[in-house]
């Protein structure tokens, strides 16, 4: 048995590994991700189940761990599909910055597991760990900045812009 193995930290929780790949949390250290874990809620959705409705007051964001979801928006005559959200992607992050109506309806296309993070908990996390709170807020701001730039360039809306 290699003695060095004893000093090696245990492998990162598989769910946190996926979270660490999401652009919003990319700057977070391992310790910060572990602290974040306490504020993430694991939810399971069945195929066809609605995660949230367009127009509903949003309170938080979701990271897809397993499965896929579809985002759509009401059109004048029929609903407009924005696209598919897959494992390792996040959606609803605008709600982390402020309460406002959701911009699309998100439905699970197959059995899906997500991790949810909500604004009140982000606020309390930022109270006790301001550095981590800043990193997450900055991550959300960067995602929104990139999205605004793409919209300004005339590119199509993203499914995660919910």
């Amino acid at each position: 048995m290699n003695l060095l193995e004893l000093f090696r930290p245990p492998p990162l929780d598989p769910m946190l590994k996926i979270v660490s790949g999401v652009s919003i949390f990319k700057e977070c250290s391992r310790a910060e991700l572990e602290a974040l874990k306490l504020h993430l809620h694991e939810r399971h959705f069945l195929a066809g189940e609605i995660v949230f409705d367009e127009g509903e007051e949003g309170e938080g964001m979701y990271v897809v761990i397993r499965g896929k979801l579809q985002a759509s928006r009401k059109g004048l005559l029929k609903k407009k599909t924005l696209g598919v959200i897959k494992s390792g992607e996040c959606f609803g992050e605008m709600a982390l910055l402020g309460a406002g109506p959701r911009m699309a309806t998100v439905v699970a296309e197959e059995a899906t597991t997500v991790l949810a993070m909500f604004r009140p908990e982000l606020v309390s996390l930022a109270d006790s760990r301001p550095r981590l709170g800043f990193k997450i807020a900055m991550g959300v701001a960067l995602v929104l900045e990139a999205r605004l730039r793409r919209l300004a360039d005339g590119e199509a809306e993203e499914p995660s812009a919910t």
């Binding site: 809620h41 694991e42 399971h44 189940e49 938080g60 949810a116 909500f118 009140p120």
Partner: peptide, 20 residues
């Protein structure tokens, strides 16, 4: 978190606001 785990998906966000 343990208490919130028992809340159905449909009511989850609203219940979280209630807790808060």
């Amino acid at each position: 978190r343990l208490v919130l785990r028992a809340v159905p998906n449909a009511f989850f966000e609203k219940t979280l606001i209630l807790f808060n």
